[in-house]
């Protein structure tokens, strides 16, 4: 994997501005698989130099700039940290936008499976069955994890953005389901 962005940045030739892409911003290679610790470290280092707290005693324009930069760095970090957001962002950079809402054409078997999941969550929630919800949560996370592994292959080895976009659309369903599960578990706690 090339590490060009990092060296380019340090050579100081590449102009660095608020529109610099998130991977370059953190000096990370543009890939789906990334080292979380490295991202975390780059994030903290960057915030340490742009955060508004560093410019609290500076003049107005420096303070405004610090807020813009710090905002941008936060956005970049949140995007790269979460695998779904990172995948969508990679597609966006490759001009293969997922077309979030318009393209909902999914194979029937996938949709039926999703429907079944959803019913099961609703049932367990109605019954206040925390144990069952937790069990489903584990299963879903395992499934997510293996799907993201496959996505890593599509992005980083095969550069198959069309197929990747299709997988990402499915992952959006599953992540939504996981969020619903979290909410159901929270409701049971209360």
């Amino acid at each position: 994997m090339p590490v060009a962005p990092a060296s380019r940045l340090m050579s100081g030739r590449e102009p660095l501005d608020l529109s610099t892409d998130f991977f370059s911003l953190f000096a990370l290679p543009r890939s789906f698989r990334l080292a979380a610790a490295q991202l975390d470290r780059a994030y903290v280092e960057l915030q340490a130099s742009v955060h508004p707290d560093r410019f609290a005693a500076a003049d107005d324009s420096a303070r405004r700039l610090a807020m813009q930069w710090s905002t941008r760095v936060n956005e970049a970090y949140q995007t790269l940290k979460k695998p779904l957001a990172r995948a969508k962002y990679l597609l966006h950079l490759a001009a293969h936008d997922v077309a979030d809402e318009n393209n909902t054409l999914m194979p029937a078997d996938f949709l039926i499976e999703q429907l079944e999941w959803r019913e099961a969550v609703a049932e367990a929630r109605a019954a206040g069955d925390h144990h069952e919800l937790e069990h489903m949560h584990h299963r879903l996370q395992r499934e997510l994890s293996s799907r993201y592994d496959e996505l890593g292959d599509l992005f980083d080895e095969r550069q198959d953005f069309v197929e990747a976009a299709d997988r990402v659309r499915r992952l959006m369903f599953i992540e939504k389901l996981l969020a619903d599960l979290d909410e159901a578990m929270a409701a049971c706690d209360a």
Binding site: M10, E45, S49
Partner: peptide
């Protein structure tokens, strides 16, 4: 911002790709 990067050495940046996983999924 450039300084924030210059603080790290290249091998560190280029390294731990072996650690690469699909993030926190």
């Amino acid at each position: 911002i450039r300084r924030a990067f210059a603080g790290r050495n290249i091998s560190e940046l280029a390294g731990d790709l072996s650690l690469a996983k699909s993030g926190e999924g």
